[in-house]
Nucleic acid binder design. Structure first.
Lengths: 190, 190
DNA sequence: GGCATTTATTAAACTAGTTTAATGAGAATC
DNA sequence: GATTCTCATTAAACTAGTTTAATAAATGCC
């Protein structure tokens, strides 16, 4: 759990006793490629930390799969939208690789926040971090062309292109496999 | 400050003494139509609550104005992206109407969070609320057509169309005034 | 190593937006 | 009340994507 501890402390100062209190609730879990951690209409009562592997977070509507995010090493994740609001999920969490994650239940997370003001602050700051990422995402969607978004992803998360099939990347970028092929072709010509 | 107090308590239970502690730091401020609360390269060290009025949050890049949000009655707001990260703003906050807002400085906000675990929780939960809104925004941008987004805005915030000029609404929706006109025409035909 | 399946590319026809420019309509100013 | 300015609409040419369908290339499996 060293990576997890380090990650928490990258947000804010947390005393040894508080961090030990928090970590005791996390359980390790292994999940095989292709397995689902979550599917639609389930409630999600767990929060995760990705130790090793890759999980895709996606919806399927009218037969169209839309990848919202790829969670890789060092990510905190869950279906945060359903988790926060206590509503049934509309999404899938599917392992794209064999993965190792740490999990904490929502009720245990609440215990941690009740017990420690420092960890409640970690919670607030990690939500802030999520805000920053989502804000950037919104700006990318609004202000950049698909080609620019593709180039940006290539720059920021190059390893994704090694570990994830292209049609899922296309979906993540909000276009069809055909569209992504066209963009790549256009770029290779110039 | 009753609206503000009520708003805070809509997130989580806060004792009278804690809420009074928090509210003492807020100052009222009036701002006239056309005035700027913030412009690019300024640092933003204040957090706001909109009592009455309307403020647009936008950027200008290469001569193109892009409206991110319209803040109206009951909204907490600031340039949260710059505020959180302590970086100079790239945005404008401009009053589209004469407005009345409550303001608290960042350092006073920190005092409030240090003093009260309950208000720190309010902070976390209001960030969660912001997350939910941004998540929905991302999904709208990814999954809906411009026409659908227009119809959704019309349904959710009909009064905006009375108080804000159409070219700003077009910008908010991520299209040109010409594009919005086309959409309206198409809809009126069916 | 060969076969079946999945994934990626290409082409062709189409669509929903863009840009530019002209027109129209309302509101503010003198 | 005429003029000016701003904002909204329309038209025409264009663009970056879409869909569908065919083909090519990789991958997995026995």
């Amino acid at each position: 759990m060293e990576d997890l501890k380090k990650k928490i402390r990258s947000f804010t100062k947390v005393s040894d006793s508080d961090i030990e209190f928090g970590l005791q609730f996390f359980k390790i879990r292994k999940i095989k490629k292709g397995e689902l951690l979550l599917k639609p209409n389930q409630c999600i009562n767990e929060f995760y930390f990705m130790q090793k592997g890759c999980i895709s977070y996606y919806t399927v509507e009218e037969g169209i799969t839309r990848v919202m995010e790829f969670f890789t090493e060092g990510y905190f994740f869950t279906d945060l939208y359903a988790f926060i609001q206590d509503i049934p999920s509309e999404s899938y969490l599917e392992a794209l690789e064999d993965s190792i994650i740490y999990t904490i239940s929502k009720s245990d997370q609440q215990k941690v926040y009740d017990h420690s003001h420092q960890l409640e602050r970690f919670g607030r700051l990690s939500m802030q971090r999520t805000f920053v990422i989502n804000f950037q995402r919104i700006n990318q969607l609004r202000n950049l062309s698909n080609q620019e978004r593709y180039l940006q992803l290539l720059e920021k998360r190059p390893s994704l292109f090694q570990r994830v099939p292209q049609y899922l990347i296309a979906s993540y970028l909000g276009l069809t496999p055909v569209g992504l092929s066209k963009i790549k072709k256009r770029l290779s010509k110039s």
